[in-house]
């Protein structure tokens, strides 16, 4: 269930790295915890964030959660389809439910690999 090629933040965002380009989303575990999503608030193109900065928020009927930048980055594209169809994040968190595309401007060393994240998610599930 957890894609091997991605990096993960402890706050349950994933980062796909392709050179200096990246894609950010939330994990399957995170969307499952929140339940049926009703709204995704995303930043604008050109916004810059340091790792750990809040870059958006996500809501379900019974919960709301902030999302944090897994890495220093500048936003180059946002997934506008989520405005009308937040359920894409539930249905396909690692695919159609991506949140933002970014230019990576900082190190990724602090992020978890798939195995470490799997362990973290298993712990939090209890």
């Amino acid at each position: 269930m957890i894609p091997q090629e991605l990096l993960y933040a402890k706050s349950h965002e994933w980062l796909k790295v392709d050179g200096e380009n990246g894609v950010i989303g939330i994990t399957h575990f995170a969307q499952e915890q929140l339940g049926d999503l009703t709204f995704v608030e995303l930043p604008q193109e050109g916004d810059t964030f340091a790792a750990g900065d809040e870059f958006g928020s996500i809501e379900s009927v019974k919960a709301a959660s902030e999302m944090y930048a897994p890495v220093d980055c500048e936003v180059v594209a946002v997934n506008e389809a989520l405005e009308d169809a937040p359920e894409k994040v539930n249905e396909d968190p690692y695919g159609d439910g991506w949140l933002v595309k970014v230019k990576i401007t900082g190190p990724t060393d602090a992020l978890l690999d798939a195995a470490a994240y799997e362990k973290l998610a298993a712990e939090e599930a209890h």
Binding site: T38, F39, E59, S60, V61, K62, A63, A64
Partner: peptide, 13 residues
């Protein structure tokens, strides 16, 4: 509806 704005869910936020 859209209660995720509200205090019983978001508390201080």
């Amino acid at each position: 509806t859209i209660q995720a704005r509200e205090q019983h869910i978001r508390r201080q936020k």
